[in-house]
Design a binder for these strands. Structure first.
Length: 562
RNA sequence: UGGGGCGUAGCCAAGUGGCCUAAGGCACCGGCUUUUGAUGCCGGCAUUCGGAGGUUCGAAUCCUCCCGCCCCAGCCA
């Protein structure tokens, strides 16, 4: 990839951040680009993170630079190894590689501590004995300036000693904090002597009990960037207010490089909730089966659901990067999934809601095999054999007794094509005592083998089917949006749980699948013709096949009906 | 009433004074093709850029004022 000029290539995305990178490279402000994706390991990655991952790794790729994966693990009360592992798996699955550059903010704790001492020595930081409540009271409000802490003017010597005692574990949580000494009257609240170190007697997933003082985000992030020689530190809009503090620390500390922070708008998706707090609540309160529940907007949820990683990357590039608060319609993501799968997924036949069909003029014990294309849109995808016999299943929705003219499927007296097999005519409808259609008697036209009539006659509809003797049973789980409102909680004062869609999961238990589906490997998504895309679930076993519906095919017929 | 941002079609989003009577994608609406009512293909979809003034031969792009929305008062990130 050309390092200095990606602007001529229409296929690479353009946005204000890439423009800045491009200019910086051209102007020689940096020789190469180093970005980083800095998750806090306190939850699973979601589609919003994917946007950031694609941005950071994407820029590194396009400009011939590097992108680090850095765990921002400065708060041991919330972080866990489980998340560290899951995050790496998810980033890798998305298709990105951080190479040697796996870092942890906790690797820099010693350096960060000594930089805190440096600040103290410069009279730019002090130990404050005020309680959290008192600090808040002194901070002032959005419109009124704050008041100096009575401990603000301790000498460097005193502060140093106190800070060392903090580190030595001589104080309880909350007894003291280290604050940067900046300006209690600043209009930017982040500059009103921000807390930069707090006492936390907690076990850290990586450093164990080595520390009981931890730097907070502001004191850790920029310096970590500097230590890793990050050139462009990209974060979301809510950190814009922190940039002056970020810059202040970089200026006042003897850091080895001078990174710059740039902010973009985080992703919002309709019918979706995208905050770790809310996702965590869905998991902990049992509204979903876990972080990887196929209804979750997490990377692991999408993976289990059967979304291809390339579709997520495509989505990230289509929505672009800007600074305007945007809520993208989920349909846009779904379009990417359909586009990828339509191109790449092999086709199979499966009947979700079976209706028995008996071909009365078809020999009792005869079985024929037909060639079915694995992907009609891809000539190189080959074919497979499918078995046809006297007793079959079709989709309940593909039969209608009193069918309107526009109904192209099976009806009493009407002829349709059974995909890849024969033209079939329905001759009789069998109902149970309740009047429900339970079986169809049909005839086939032997002349139409393969699906074409030598006399040139046409049928309007082609439907899919499964041979009763050959099909395998499976459970299929279909998913709808987890929320019934575009913006969950918008109409109920933020109570997003009030908008949970009670019908987000439908379990179909008597599905009839083409036998080859028994061997479908985990992680591969196929199309069930005329229905949608499906993949085997991790709970699937040879005893009981379980499939997830990734997404349905577009259905203009269903749209017309309603 | 402090500070920081943002406002281009239903939803994203290009555009940074003249080739803009404004890209592209999603959605939507037509038509054609089709052994998936899928896909594909073709066409339609902002005389207008939050509003009002102004500068200019010329403005979505510059200036002024106004309006609307988002973020910030964690010892979270």
């Amino acid at each position: 990839m050309n390092q200095t000029d990606n602007t001529d290539d229409d296929s690479t995305p353009r946005d204000f951040i890439r423009d800045i990178v491009h200019e910086d490279l051209n102007a020689g402000r940096t020789a190469s680009v180093v970005t980083r994706f800095p998750p806090e390991p306190n939850g699973y990655l979601h589609i919003g993170h994917a946007k950031s991952i694609c941005l950071n790794f994407g820029i590194a790729d396009e400009f011939g630079g590097k992108c680090h994966l850095r765990f921002d693990d400065t708060n041991p009360t919330k972080e866990e190894q489980e998340y560290i592992d899951a995050i790496q798996e998810d980033v890798r699955w998305l298709g990105f590689d951080w190479g040697e550059n796996l870092h942890y903010t906790s690797d820099y704790f010693e350096q960060l501590y000594s930089w805190a001492e440096h600040l103290i020595n410069q009279s730019m930081a002090y130990v404050d004995d005020l309680s959290a409540d008192e600090i808040r009271e002194h901070r002032g409000t959005l419109t009124e300036p704050g008041k100096n802490s009575p401990y603000r003017d301790r000498t460097p010597e005193e502060n140093l000693a106190l800070f060392q005692q903090m580190r030595a574990g001589e104080f309880e949580n909350g007894a003291k904090v280290l604050r940067a000494k900046i300006d209690m009257a600043s209009g930017n609240i982040n500059l009103r002597d921000p807390v930069i170190y707090r006492i936390l007697h907690a076990e850290h997933p990586r450093t164990g009990n080595e520390w009981c003082v931890y730097p907070n985000y502001d004191f850790a992030h920029g310096q970590s960037d500097a230590l890793e020689h990050i050139t462009h530190s990209i974060c979301t809009l809510e950190f814009e207010d922190h940039r002056p503090l970020y810059d202040w620390l970089i200026e006042n500390l003897p850091v080895p490089s001078e990174p710059h922070q740039y902010e973009f708008a985080r992703l919002n998706l309709t019918y979706t909730v995208l905050s770790k707090r809310r996702l965590m609540q869905l998991v902990n309160d049992g509204h979903v089966a876990g972080w990887d529940d196929p209804r979750m907007p997490t990377i692991s949820g999408y993976r289990r659901r059967g979304y291809p990683p390339a579709a997520i990357r495509d989505f990230a590039s289509r929505i672009g990067v800007s600074k305007s608060n945007a809520t993208v319609e989920v349909q846009s993501l779904e379009a990417c999934v359909r586009e990828d799968l339509n191109k790449n997924a092999e086709r199979r036949m499966a009947v979700l809601k079976p209706l028995k069909v008996v071909i009365e003029n078809y020999p009792e014990n005869q079985v024929e095999e037909f060639d079915a294309k694995n992907n009609p849109n891809d000539e190189n995808s080959g074919t497979r054999k499918i078995s046809f016999s006297r007793e079959l299943y079709i989709e309940q929705d593909d039969f209608m007794e009193d069918a309107p003219k526009k109904f192209f499927r099976l009806s009493l007296g009407r002829e349709v094509r059974f995909r890849y097999a024969y033209f079939i005519t329905c001759t009789d409808v069998i109902k149970d005592d309740a009047g429900e259609v339970v079986e169809l008697r049909c005839t086939y036209d032997p002349e139409t083998k393969g699906g074409n009539a030598p006399d040139g006659r046409k049928v309007k509809g082609t439907i899919h089917w499964a041979s009763a003797a050959h099909a395998v049973d499976a459970e299929i789980r279909q998913y709808d949006y987890l929320f019934s409102e575009e913006v969950p909680g918008a109409n109920s004062d933020g109570d997003f749980l009030a908008d949970i869609n009670a019908n987000s999961l439908t379990v179909l238990s008597e599905c009839k699948l083409e036998p080859a589906l028994r061997e479908l490997p985990l992680g591969e998504t196929v199309q069930f013709e005329r229905i949608g895309y499906f993949c085997a679930d991790k709970e699937s076993s040879s005893d009981k096949l379980v499939f997830n519906q990734t997404i349905g095919l577009r259905d203009t017929w269903a749209k017309k009906k309603s």
